[in-house]
Design a protein around this nucleic acid. Structure first.
Length: 167
DNA sequence: TAGGCCATCTGGTCCT
DNA sequence: AGGACCAGATGGCCTA
């Protein structure tokens, strides 16, 4: 990625970046965005500020501390128990009645779906610029940083056509 | 210990 | 009818 390598974010959630998730707000975040060029250091500082970045670090980003939890059926017992209870309880009529086997199959499909969703999040984590950070981005942090990043790059592209301002 | 994050289950709704 | 998608509930793990 052509973005500054040491460009990373930190606690996006409790940062001003949360106020920048819309394009309309983006201009407020980059008040000097009419300038043709933003130096990489400026860019770094600015996005760091926006996203509430922590300090730079050279440490590698620890990905995959969990996620591929194919065998994670921690609630299996509880769910089976509840399922059996459900069959005994008097419930209001439902539109669709499914068998235990169908419910189990649906659970498997849902796990697969969530797994693929997390794979997509992992791919997105690799695309957004981050500091070598001691903790991987959460899903919500990943989304919000991606929004800020895309907005910034869009702004950068828009400014590229304008005449440069001599320094 | 409280709060954040996540995995999983579950039932409802939409779509094919 | 059945699969995909979604949101709520729940419990486990981790960190400040």
């Amino acid at each position: 990625m052509a973005f500054p390598a040491n460009f990373v974010h930190s606690s996006v959630l409790d940062s001003p970046a949360l106020d920048l998730v819309t394009d309309s707000d983006f201009g407020l975040a980059f008040p000097e965005s009419d300038q043709t060029e933003l130096h990489s250091a400026d860019l770094c500082d600015r996005l760091c500020g926006l996203a509430g970045m922590r300090e730079f670090s050279d440490e590698p980003i620890p990905f995959g501390d969990h996620g591929e939890q194919v065998n994670g059926f921690g609630d299996q017992g509880r769910s089976d128990e509840l399922g059996s209870l459900d069959s005994l309880m008097v419930r209001p009529q439902r539109k669709r009645v499914i068998t235990h086997a169908q419910r189990q199959a649906a659970n498997v499909r849902e796990r697969k779906r969530m797994f693929s969703l997390n794979e997509a999040f992992d791919q997105l984590r690799k695309k957004v610029p981050t500091f070598a950070y001691e903790k991987r981005l959460s899903r919500i942090e990943t989304l919000r940083l991606a929004i800020v990043y895309i907005s910034f790059m869009t702004e950068l592209l828009n400014n590229k056509g304008k005449s440069p301002i001599p320094e």
